Amino acid sequence: MKDKISKSISEKKIVEVPLETISSIDVNPRKGGLVLENVEALVASGDFPEIHLGLFDGDLIVVDGYHRLAATHKLERDKINAFIIEYKTMTELKKQAFVSNVNHGIKLSQLDIALNIYEFYIEAIKTKTSAKLKDVIKEYQVQERTGRQLFYWALFNRSILENKSIDMSGLTRYEDYNKLLIWKNENIADISEEFKIFFKEFYEKYDKLPTTNRRAAIDLHMEGKEFFEEEKKQQEHVDEINQKDREAAFLDKDEIGEDEIDRQGISGGATGAITSGENPNKVMENLDEEYSGEINQDREVKPKKEKKESISNTIMDIHQKSAAIKMHTIKGHIAWSKDDYETLQSIIDNLSETVSQIDSSSFYGDKI
Rank of each mutant, 00 (worst) to 15 (best):
D3G: 10
D3Q: 07
K4V: 11
S6Y: 11
K12C: 07
E16C: 11
E16H: 09
E16R: 08
S23R: 00
S24T: 12
D26R: 09
P29I: 02
V35Q: 13
E37C: 05
N38Y: 03
L42C: 04
L42A: 04
V43F: 02
D47T: 07
F48Q: 05
H52M: 11
L53W: 04
D57P: 09
D59T: 08
L69F: 04
H73C: 09
E76H: 09
I80T: 01
A82I: 01
K88N: 15
K95L: 05
A97I: 02
A97N: 01
A97L: 04
F98R: 04
V99E: 02
S100I: 04
N103T: 07
L108M: 02
L115T: 07
Y121T: 04
Y121D: 02
I122W: 00
E123F: 11
A131R: 07
A131D: 03
K134M: 13
I137M: 01
Y140N: 00
V142L: 00
E144R: 11
E144M: 11
Q149F: 11
L150W: 02
Y152W: 04
A154R: 03
F156N: 01
R158H: 13
I160K: 00
I160E: 02
S165M: 05
D167A: 04
M168Y: 09
G170S: 05
Y174Q: 04
D176P: 03
D176V: 09
D176R: 10
K179N: 07
I182Y: 01
E186M: 03
A189F: 03
K205L: 10
K205C: 10
Y206Q: 05
D207K: 14
P210F: 03
T212A: 13
N213R: 13
R215C: 07
R215Q: 05
E226H: 05
E231R: 09
V238W: 12
D239L: 10
I241T: 10
I241D: 01
K253P: 15
G257K: 15
I261V: 13
D262Y: 05
D262A: 10
G269E: 06
I274Q: 04
S276V: 15
M284C: 12
M284K: 09
L287S: 03
S292R: 12
Q297L: 12
R299H: 14
R299S: 12
V301D: 00
K302L: 13
P303E: 07
K307S: 14
I311M: 13
S312E: 14
D317S: 15
K321M: 08
M327G: 14
S337P: 02
K338E: 15
D339E: 14
Y341D: 12
Y341T: 09
E342C: 09
I347S: 10
N350D: 14
L351F: 03
I358W: 03
S361G: 10
F363R: 14
Y364K: 15
G365S: 01
